[in-house]
């Protein structure tokens, strides 16, 4: 799931222009899912039962399986990421496909269903889709043939080319005509010229780069590194490292939410065998840091509601059935919880 502040800015600008210049034009009605909260449910391995739920923030009505409802067929995949770009919502399934839907009503607009192995995320640039993909497993369950798949149509279609990158690429972000790739296993940020569909630069970093985010007009990289968390920022004119900041937050997963003031809520997990999950708090523009802000187990996804200033944390319930969402206030006090789909892993607040 992506939060694109730059794109939000464009959207706000567009809304402003529309209101300013088209006073007498009919308003484009918002779709049912253009507001509220989209809940991404990954699904369970082998079952391909990933789906999206929608929570109407006004009425508290929860709608299940909105992809299946809109398209009269199941999503049929493990939902890895949801990316909203250019008023199209891309549902990335790590089982080998990308569905493109209208974000207002979830009707299908297109898809990429062939020549993908384990897609992780996506960005749109230069009229193309760039899809990060682990590539196939080898006999040792390694992924030496990871790539970025390029599709020459933002509504999907065939993969036109694959750009080889370091093992296990995760998040992607667009800047101008460039695409930055978070190479999680080898500690690299790779830069692709989107127009030429070529890899032009590689930046070595520490840790496991997992996600990019934008704050204060900069692009940051979130890179957990065992006992510490590293945030990088970049010079975007020559693609070199600008800042490197180490934080004493251990066992960070690649999942976090960030509020409008730069306060991050980071999922942590001690993993096997001393299994303990938690949420760490980090103010990247201030001094606040709390590695054990909230503790529990079974956490699988996190989100931040900028309207009500609430933190949404999910529990997979061991993938035995549906998961649950627990809503916390900014002091970590539980406000409510409700059942959602299988393996809830992220949110999109609209």
């Amino acid at each position: 799931m992506k939060f694109r502040l730059l794109q939000f800015s464009k959207a706000f600008a567009l809304i402003f222009i529309l209101f300013a210049c088209t006073e007498n034009d009919p308003e484009i009605p918002l779709g049912e899912f253009d507001s509220g909260i989209l809940i991404m449910n990954e699904g369970s391995f082998g079952s391909n039962d990933g789906e999206v739920y929608h929570l109407n923030s006004t009425t508290d009505e929860l709608k299940a399986n909105i992809f299946e409802e809109a398209n009269a067929r199941p999503f049929a995949g493990l939902l890895q990421d949801m990316v909203l770009e250019n008023d199209r919502l891309y549902l990335v399934a790590n089982t080998g496909k990308v569905e493109v839907v209208n974000p207002g009503d979830f009707t299908s607009l297109g898809s990429v269903t062939a020549d993908l192995d384990q897609p992780r995320s996506l960005t749109v640039n230069s009229g193309k889709l760039f899809i990060s993909d682990y590539g196939p497993y080898d006999a040792s369950y390694a992924t030496p043939e990871s790539y970025i798949a390029v599709v020459n149509n933002t509504l999907g279609g065939e993969v036109s080319t694959k750009i080889a990158v370091s093992r296990k690429p995760e998040d992607l972000i667009s800047y101008g005509k460039y695409v930055l790739v978070a190479g999680s296993e080898e500690g690299k940020v790779e830069v692709i010229d989107a127009e030429k569909s070529e890899l032009i630069e590689t930046i070595e970093v520490e840790g496991s780069p997992s996600r990019f985010f934008e704050a204060d007009g900069k692009i940051y990289l979130f890179s957990p590194n065992g006992d510490e968390l590293i945030l990088y920022s970049f010079h975007l004119d020559n693609f070199t490292l600008a800042t490197t900041t180490h934080y004493p937050i251990s066992n960070a997963t690649g999942k976090f939410a960030i509020d409008e003031n730069g306060v991050m809520y980071i999922l942590t997990s001690s993993g096997w065998p001393d299994y303990q999950d938690g949420i760490a708090l980090l103010d990247i523009f201030g001094s606040a840091i709390d590695p054990t802000w909230y503790e529990g187990s079974g956490f699988y996804g996190i989100g931040y509601d900028p309207v009500l200033d609430e933190i949404y944390v999910t529990n997979s319930n061991g993938f035995q059935g549906n998961g649950t969402v627990t809503v916390l206030d900014e002091d970590g006090v539980e406000k409510r919880s409700f059942e959602v789909g299988r393996g809830p892993s992220g949110f999109m607040f609209r």
Partner: peptide, 8 residues
């Protein structure tokens, strides 16, 4: 593979 998966 199940429908929706491209595993071989």
């Amino acid at each position: 593979s199940p429908m929706g998966s491209n595993t071989r």
